Simulated scan of single mutants.
Amino acid sequence: MEGTHKRRYVSDLRREHAEATRLRIAEAARALMIERGFAATTMGDVAAAAGVAVQTLYAACPGGKPGLVKLVYDVTLAGDGRQVPQSGRPPVQAIIEEPDPVRKLGLYAAMAVAILGRIGPVHRVLRAAAAAGGAGVGDLLDETERQRRTGSRRLAGHLAEVGALRAGLTADRAADEAYVLTSIEVYERFVDVCGWSVAAYEEWLARTLAGALLTP
């Protein structure tokens, strides 16, 4: 039994160390990419800024620079270095457990806005890199959109399961509406172009989602 506890302790320490390393690499790479752009950020620069060996960087980012970009995106999306899927994180569990559909969508809007605020600067860098032909960046952006659509389908399916979708609205159509309303493009139009505060956008998003998806 003592050996089991010791192995678990060592395993936990290794996991925590790996998560801390992932976070340090992602933060260093994100800062450099936002400052210099995608093309001007080298793997060597990131390793030096993160305080890790280049070999460690490549081990943490399989595939080289495209792998590094994916790590930056994933860590920024999650807000930490833990390798836990978004569906298993506390904000998603809180949405599922909330009994009131309007408050569910309020929590969903808050989660979406928090993610958009974190990911916005990275997304702009990646869009510019994809337009310039950055290796693997376009594929990554396509994959992130597929993941967003999957998340929207989960929300719509959950609302359908609890009988909250308005009459005549299919789960597929509800998923499409949630997907578009929570897009980075809509967020940027309101906040960056129209000058709305993030709080104002979040209130609008929650209200609009409820009006579009729920039974009055």
Score class of each variant (00 low, 15 high):
41 T>W: 04
119 I>Q: 03
82 R>K: 14
147 Q>K: 10
199 A>M: 07
22 R>A: 02
161 E>M: 03
191 V>D: 04
145 E>W: 08
191 V>F: 09
58 Y>M: 12
82 R>A: 15
165 L>P: 06
181 L>K: 07
123 H>T: 03
145 E>Q: 13
4 T>Y: 10
106 G>E: 15
150 T>Y: 08
132 A>S: 15
204 W>N: 12
192 D>Y: 06
121 P>E: 13
23 L>M: 10
24 R>Y: 02
120 G>C: 14
19 E>L: 04
62 P>C: 12
79 G>Y: 02
188 E>S: 14
104 K>P: 01
32 L>W: 04
104 K>N: 09
200 A>V: 05
45 D>I: 01
150 T>V: 11
148 R>N: 09
116 L>N: 12
70 K>R: 15
39 A>D: 12
211 G>E: 14
165 L>Q: 04
94 A>W: 00
187 Y>S: 07
125 V>E: 13
147 Q>S: 13
28 A>M: 09
55 Q>D: 14
104 K>M: 09
17 H>F: 15
215 T>N: 07
188 E>V: 15
169 L>D: 08
27 E>F: 07
205 L>W: 06
99 P>K: 03
84 V>M: 02
156 A>D: 02
54 V>F: 09
110 A>Q: 14
82 R>H: 12
213 L>T: 09
113 V>D: 00
204 W>K: 11
7 R>A: 13
188 E>C: 11
36 R>T: 07
10 V>C: 13
49 A>D: 06
50 A>K: 00
205 L>K: 11
30 R>M: 08
156 A>R: 01
87 S>T: 07
104 K>S: 07
53 A>K: 01
11 S>T: 09
131 A>Q: 13
100 D>H: 07
113 V>H: 02
121 P>Y: 08
112 A>H: 02
66 P>I: 05
187 Y>F: 15
6 K>E: 15
12 D>V: 13
131 A>H: 02
56 T>W: 01
18 A>T: 13
88 G>T: 00
56 T>F: 01
174 A>V: 08
190 F>L: 13
101 P>Q: 06
164 A>N: 06
92 V>F: 10
74 D>S: 11
99 P>I: 04
130 A>E: 08
112 A>F: 05
65 K>P: 10
95 I>C: 04
186 V>M: 12
19 E>A: 11
100 D>S: 08
24 R>V: 04
192 D>E: 12
35 E>V: 05
149 R>W: 05
193 V>W: 10
104 K>C: 11
155 L>E: 07
187 Y>C: 10
11 S>A: 14
172 D>F: 04
49 A>M: 01
177 E>C: 07
194 C>S: 15
161 E>I: 00
21 T>V: 15
73 Y>G: 01
112 A>E: 05
71 L>P: 03
57 L>R: 06
30 R>F: 10
196 W>R: 11
118 R>F: 05
110 A>H: 02
196 W>H: 13
197 S>A: 14
30 R>H: 08
204 W>G: 02
140 L>A: 03
76 T>L: 11
214 L>K: 04
93 Q>H: 12
53 A>D: 10
135 A>M: 13
118 R>W: 07
42 T>E: 10
212 A>N: 09
117 G>I: 03
143 E>H: 05
211 G>A: 14
7 R>G: 04
34 I>D: 01
55 Q>W: 01
1 M>D: 05
33 M>E: 12
146 R>A: 06
101 P>H: 05
9 Y>A: 15
58 Y>I: 11
189 R>V: 14
216 P>T: 12
56 T>L: 02
53 A>P: 03
174 A>M: 10
